[in-house]
């Protein structure tokens, strides 16, 4: 479990929800950091086998941190900073299918 070592108790916080649960996290957290700091090591489950996956690289290269942010799926949690009132949902299995297909039509690197 990740803990805060910043020694900055003075940081302003914002209020977000993760899968409907309200959390206060300091400003400047990425969505992926917010998941980890609240004890969630998984951000999504895979299309093919339904395995859980969690943030892996935190720098935008692995796409394991894809989450739904304010209703928009497939946002990179490690590249998105939290905002007051943000609603984050971890992406579950089949919920992803339609979006992933749409993504692959335009961006699969073929």
């Amino acid at each position: 479990m990740f803990q805060d070592v910043s020694q900055r108790a003075d940081r302003a916080t914002v209020s977000i929800t993760i899968d409907g649960v309200i959390h206060q996290v300091p400003e400047g957290y990425t969505v992926a950091a917010a998941l980890l700091a609240t004890g969630r090591n998984a951000s999504r489950s895979t299309l093919v086998s339904g395995q859980s996956r969690g943030p892996y690289c935190l720098m935008g290269v692995c796409y394991e941190c894809l989450v739904e942010v304010d209703g928009i799926p497939n946002r990179q949690g490690c590249m998105t900073e939290v905002r007051d009132g943000m609603a984050i949902r971890r992406q579950q299995g089949v919920g992803v299918v339609g979006q992933a297909t749409e993504q692959q039509e335009v961006g699969d690197g073929r």
Binding site: F2, Q3, A33, L36, A37, C78
Partner: peptide, 10 residues
């Protein structure tokens, strides 16, 4: 990366 921003460690 988590250490540099926002200051988290496991």
């Amino acid at each position: 990366i988590l250490l540099k921003n926002p200051g988290l460690a496991a």
